[in-house]
Design a protein around this nucleic acid. Structure first.
Length: 735
RNA sequence: AGCGGGGUGGGGUAGCUUGGAAAUCCCAUCAGGCUCAUAACCUGAAGAUCGUUGGUUCAAAUCCAACCCCCGCUACCA
């Protein structure tokens, strides 16, 4: 039996997985694995949680727990989420296992034995009080390029320059504040340069790779590879199996990729066949596929292959299927910015198959894609429910109602034959696309077949045939059910549980999983009594998806006042012309607070998607934001100058639809004082809520959305937050 | 900043490697039809001078150059 190894990038155990992980690697890997099982191949599919590395120690330090506790927590959460999503791993493990440690040490020693490691001493800061070496980011000091005294050792947040910790004057340990000393420390380096030529030849052969993966890799190789350190001075990670290195650990990027191999070995050991892993790694006819995001390409096209070459005797990746990114409201997913949709969350609202559908249909295969709740609801409702689900349901429920069983197939006319030929054609299309890892295309072919089904059903009109020619009606229904059967089998890689439900609904024996694509040829069992069909998918109520985003339906932009005039017919109102990237007329009630001259040239924050409204006879197209508290009023403004029209974000979907004034009033936006930075807390007047903020200054007052017990500080590009032009009390309501 | 990818009707996309009758498909919009089905389905229409500016050519979305914008990597998010 032909064998396939499916490898999926290892989610980092520092937070719950989100839709980006799923659409970027987990889901394409699973679809591909299921497809291969369907066509009868022996599939090994592995991944796990990446448990090591500095970010986890940082989280642990923040929470005051051990790194292991953090890693274990998210490993549990993510294992569950992955299972709930129906991702069919042979084994989903993690990198903090004995197996992995052994494999990592073994590979390390083998690379050393083969002469691909070198040792080098470099100076690094060591904190005597903490008795540890400090990673660059843990060192704080004065930036040599600007006056910032709080530059981190890797980068200055103030001027943005890249730094080495040694460049800082007045270096301090960020953990305890004491002055660290520079010490020599010795590390191992992977001699990547040994492999440049061989890797170049290898990648040049791989012309079946996606072009962006291949050209990017070739470019990296053309620049020449630099030897990289593979050990570092931290205590969390895989120990280095060399005397004198007891206090050091392997770099996580070096050790985590080995997880593919160690997971396969762990799988084999669990089956009491410890040598079984070799069938997937040493047999040159086995093709291995790696699914990951574009940020991860070099690790899989250069570094891991170099390691495999250095060890020798192990298969190189056959294909590295890298996806682009799925963004959310124009922003990349990022936990720190509060821009993410966690899988555990979304699964409380929607079934796995529905989520899988959307994430496949919108998969960022060749370029970035955008997740919006509006698009989510739309695609589910009009594609999955209306086209696909509805065809299956109308065919099955009509048959059930009028026959109660699978009807007899009589003589086929030209149209029936053409339809069945179309089914075969669609089957070939779907399977071809799946084999080429073109999942959106495959899904499209599947949907096209559902549409053809609808067209056929309409053309043969069984609802009138049933009254005139019941025999012929049975035949066209039989053909329709054939289409359903094909849809069931072909949709299995994408939506496995719905597919199996359809299979059972058609009175077919066994399961799709057991029969594979042979199920396409298996005849329907005429005369079998059917169960009453139920719709496969329910429509998504707009409210359900809005629940996630209603607080962010505001489209805020930076606006520059170009002209201010008194309203001809009102005491308190101004007519303001504001540039928000385009001119906009705004009527505002600021006359009691600001003179026209004070307002001219001012830079404000404008709601640009409000329903226009007439105020004392003049149309107002937008609204400027101001905070109000006990008779005092302050205008919202960006803390640094931003050009007119710049998008200001709460971090989530900007919506795009028009917002009525009533809806706007339901939103809670307040002035809040940042009372602590880590974890960030915001005082919004009488109560303190947790908040997300990009890099706030404690004691400063910011504008923030408040929802429940958390808040989202509004911000523009470059972490520019929204502040006030006059002092205003914390808790002031913004409108 | 360097490197890679992308910029096609309102939104998403195909085509661009091998230039050729003003361009594919889905959604939304509009007009019809049907009534089996989750107001679902089917048919038809309107809608783009293919990021900008130049160039090559009889002919460019498609090739070349410059520029603008978005994203990623370089810098521990798929």
């Amino acid at each position: 039996m032909e064998r396939v190894l499916v490898c999926c990038a290892w989610p980092y155990a520092n937070g719950p997985i989100h839709v980006g992980h799923v659409t970027g690697s987990l889901l394409p890997a699973d679809i591909f694995a299921r497809f291969n099982r369907l066509v009868g191949k022996d599939v090994m599919m592995v991944s796990g949680s990446d448990m090591h590395g500095a970010p986890i120690t940082v989280s642990a330090h923040k929470e005051g727990v051990s790194p292991e506790e953090i890693a274990d927590r998210y490993h549990r959460i993510n294992s569950k989420a992955i299972e709930d999503l129906g991702i069919s791993f042979s084994l989903y493990t993690h990198t903090h296992t004995r197996d992995h440690e052994e494999v990592a040490k073994e590979i390390f020693l083998k690379l050393m034995e083969n002469g691909h490691l070198s040792r080098k001493s470099t100076p690094q800061y060591y904190c005597t009080r903490c008795s540890r070496f400090l990673p660059d980011r843990y060192v704080e000091g004065s930036c040599p390029h600007c006056d910032n005294e709080h530059a981190r050792g890797d980068q200055c947040d103030s001027c943005g320059m890249d730094l080495n910790a040694e460049e800082l004057s007045d270096a301090r340990c960020q953990l305890c504040g004491s002055t660290p000393e520079l010490r020599e420390t010795e590390h191992f380096f992977l001699r990547l340069s040994d492999f440049t030529d061989e890797l170049t030849r290898y990648v040049e052969r791989c012309d079946h790779w996606r072009t962006h993966v291949r050209s990017f890799t070739l470019n990296v190789l053309r620049d020449g590879l630099i030897d990289r350190p593979i050990t570092r001075d931290i205590s969390w990670g895989v120990p280095v199996p060399v005397e004198g290195f007891e206090s050091k650990r392997m770099y996580v990027w070096f050790e985590a990729v080995m997880g593919y191999l160690s997971a396969t070995k762990e799988w084999a050991a669990a089956r009491s066949a410890p040598d079984d892993w070799e069938r997937f790694w040493k047999d040159g006819s086995v093709k291995s596929y790696y699914f990951l995001g574009k940020d991860n390409i070099v690790f899989h096209t250069v570094i891991w292959p170099a390691m495999l070459l250095g060890v020798g005797g192990l298969n190189l990746p056959h294909n590295v299927v890298a996806n682009q990114f799925m963004n959310f409201g124009g922003q990349k997913f990022s936990k720190s910015m509060g821009v993410s949709i966690d899988i555990p969350d979304i699964l409380t609202k929607f079934s796995a198959d529905v989520v899988r559908y959307y994430l496949t249909a919108n998969m960022p295969e060749f370029k970035d894609s955008e997740f919006t709740w509006k698009d989510f609801a739309q695609r589910i409702n009009s594609e999955l429910v209306a086209t696909f689900g509805n065809f299956v349901h109308r065919a099955m429920s009509f048959t059930f109602k009028n026959y109660g069983a699978i009807p007899h197939k009589g003589e086929l006319d030209e149209r029936d034959k053409a339809m069945l030929a179309r089914v075969d054609e669609a089957g070939r299309d779907v399977l071809r696309s799946l084999g080429a890892c073109e999942f959106r295309e495959a899904m499209k072919s599947l949907m096209d077949l559902a549409q053809s089904g609808n067209q056929y059903f309409d053309a043969v009109a069984p609802w009138s045939l049933v009254r005139t020619d019941k025999e012929r009606c049975g035949t066209v229904l039989h053909v329709s059910l054939e289409i359903c059967k094909a849809l069931a089998v072909l949709s299995y890689p994408f939506m496995p549980s719905s597919a199996e439900r359809m299979w059972r609904g058609l009175c077919m024996e066994g399961s799709i999983e057991e029969n594979g694509t042979n199920g396409m040829e298996m005849p329907l069992k005429e005369g079998s009594t059917m169960e009453k069909p139920a719709p496969l998918f329910a429509k998504v109520e707009t409210g359900e998806s809005e629940a996630f985003s209603k607080h962010s339906a505001l489209d805020l932009k930076v606006g520059k006042v170009t002209d201010v005039q008194a309203h001809p017919n009102a005491d308190k109102l101004y007519l303001m012309d504001v540039d928000v990237g385009k001119p906009m007329r705004i009527v505002s009630g600021l006359k009691d607070y600001y003179t026209a001259d004070e307002l001219r040239e001012k830079v404000l924050i404008i709601v640009t998607n409000l329903e226009p409204a007439k105020l004392r006879g003049v149309m107002s197209e937008g609204m400027l934001l101001a905070a109000e508290e006990g008779g005092a009023l302050a205008l919202l403004t960006p803390e640094k100058p931003l050009p007119a029209g710049t998008q200001i974000s709460s971090g989530l979907d900007v919506g795009g639809g028009r917002l009525s004034f009533n809806e706007f009033q339901k939103l809670e936006i307040r002035a809040g004082t940042l009372v602590q930075a880590d974890p960030p807390k915001l005082d919004v007047g009488g109560r303190t809520v947790s908040c997300t903020v990009t890099s706030g200054e404690v004691g400063r007052r910011y504008a923030a959305y408040v929802r429940g017990s958390s808040a989202l500080v509004m911000y523009g590009p470059d972490d520019t937050k929204v502040v006030f032009d006059r002092d205003i009390a914390a808790g002031a309501r913004i409108r």
